[in-house]
Simulated assay, not measured.
Amino acid sequence: MGHELALVSVWVGLVVWCNGDRFWWQAGWDEQCGRPAYVSRPVSGVEEVARLVAARCAELRRVRFGERADPRQAQPEERANPPRVQAGEWAAAPMQEPKSPQGPV
């Protein structure tokens, strides 16, 4: 029943699809047509795809975070002390490391 597609969500608004022959992803917005503009490359060019997707991801991060898009640019205190949740806000529980099985293997 599947369509033999694989996808990877890289960043907010950046999903890369692959059908075994080609990769494609949204590269922006076509103002003239009023719809998303997509880029497509053959799977034989996976290195080029990786560079293009990384560049698009960096572009989206800059749009969202400005010049501070690179987390390495954050001050040490910003990395060490993430923002606290205010009263009434929802916070996700931190992920736990999976426990190793108990007993004989």
Rank of each mutant, 00 (worst) to 15 (best):
D30I: 14
E31A: 10
Q32N: 03
Q32C: 03
C33Y: 07
G34K: 00
R35S: 12
R35L: 13
R35N: 11
A37Q: 11
A37G: 11
Y38R: 05
Y38V: 09
V39Y: 01
S40G: 06
S40R: 07
R41Q: 04
P42F: 03
P42H: 04
V43W: 02
V43S: 03
S44W: 00
S44C: 01
G45R: 00
G45H: 01
G45E: 01
G45C: 02
G45L: 01
V46N: 00
V46M: 00
E47H: 02
E48L: 05
V49F: 03
R51W: 09
R51A: 11
R51Q: 12
L52E: 15
L52K: 12
V53T: 09
V53L: 12
C57M: 12
C57W: 10
C57R: 13
A58T: 09
A58K: 11
A58P: 09
A58G: 13
E59W: 06
L60E: 02
R61H: 08
R62P: 07
V63H: 04
V63S: 06
V63A: 05
R64W: 07
F65K: 11
F65P: 10
F65L: 14
G66F: 09
G66T: 11
G66A: 12
E67W: 08
E67L: 10
E67Y: 07
E67A: 14
R68Y: 09
R68C: 12
A69W: 07
A69V: 07
D70G: 01
D70T: 03
D70V: 03
P71I: 02
R72A: 05
R72T: 04
Q73I: 09
Q73M: 09
A74R: 03
A74M: 03
A74D: 04
Q75Y: 15
Q75S: 15
P76R: 10
P76A: 10
E77L: 14
E77H: 15
E78Y: 11
R79Y: 06
